[in-house]
């Protein structure tokens, strides 16, 4: 009976939060035939195609710079002239980002503020969750290129776990040369798709084939599976990525060197050693890989 029974929303209405990497240091290192403007034109086409798919689809774009991140586009507030609005806001953003990052750390490419934009995306999604019982299905797409900042380890992991709790998949598309351990873990934990395209010229095809798939259709389709996930953690003391380290038995903080006292929870490690000097009380962290 078609009359009264079909009032449920369609399954494919989605809210897509796209996080784009605007790190200028990264974009200058990339080879010259695929620059930021080519990247943007692919992304804009992709956003248009998402909005084309369903009248109720919603797209939010968050720009990630070196020292701050901000919403640059929201399809629910801006109806016409999508590209112009987005580009204007993006330009403003980049200028402000440049003025904020004063001193230049000379050691390679500075990481983008992934943790900040992930948190902003999650905040936005929480607001949508609370706005009413009928909301689109949210997901996050990270278009990231710059290397991971080990200093953001804790905050990125926290963002990942809160995304997992609220059942928001984080898809990631890595544009840079090397894999990103953060995003591998993010997609693995939240059930999203992680992919590193081989040819950036066909970025739109990658985006439309893999990342345009709504959550409902994902249960019927074969999507790229992770080959291997880098589960390595960063130590809390020097923010280095480590293979083996020490872990606090109370609060699970990770350290690269033996400490007398946990800097996070304040537990004193020395006591067990006094009673039994043969094996130290610190558990050795073994990486899962």
């Amino acid at each position: 009976m078609t009359s009264v029974s079909s009032k449920l929303p369609t399954d494919d209405v989605s809210l897509l939060v796209v996080i784009i990497d605007t790190n200028p240091l990264f974009w200058t290192t990339l080879n010259s035939n695929f620059g930021f403007s080519e990247f943007l034109s692919h992304v804009l086409s992709f956003l248009n195609s998402i909005l084309l798919l369903n009248q109720l689809n919603q797209v939010v774009v968050i720009a990630t710079g070196i020292s701050w991140c901000d919403y640059v586009y929201d399809s629910s507030t801006c109806v016409s002239k999508r590209a112009e609005t987005l580009l204007d806001k993006l330009e403003e953003f980049v200028e402000k980002d440049e003025s904020l990052s004063t001193e230049d750390s000379a050691d390679g490419v500075a990481p983008s503020l992934l943790s900040g934009s992930l948190s902003m995306a999650l905040c936005y999604i929480q607001r949508v969750f609370r706005s009413g019982s009928l909301h689109p299905q949210p997901r996050i797409l990270c278009l990231h290129g710059s290397p991971d900042g080990p200093g953001q380890y804790v905050s990125v992991m926290n963002a990942i776990f809160s995304a997992q709790r609220s059942m928001v998949p984080i898809d990631s598309c890595v544009i840079g040369a090397q894999h990103s351990a953060f995003l591998q873990q993010a997609s693995y934990i939240t059930g999203g798709v992680y992919m590193k395209p081989e040819h950036f010229d066909g970025l739109f095809q990658y985006l439309s084939t893999v990342f345009a798939t709504d959550l409902h259709s994902r249960s019927f389709l074969q999507l790229p599976k992770p080959v291997g996930v880098d589960f390595r953690a960063s130590c809390f003391c020097h923010k280095n990525t480590i293979n083996t380290g020490y872990i606090c038995s109370v609060c699970l903080s990770i350290f690269c060197k033996h400490q007398k006292k946990c800097s996070t929870c304040g537990s004193i490690f020395g006591q067990a050693q006094l009673q039994d000097s043969s094996t130290p009380d610190k558990k050795r962290k073994t990486p899962s890989q």
């Binding site: 369609t10 494919d12 798919l53 439309s208 259709s217």
Partner: peptide, 11 residues
Amino acid sequence: PLAKKYVVQLL
């Protein structure tokens, strides 16, 4: 939904 996806894919 699946048909929409196919169209976008072949666009």
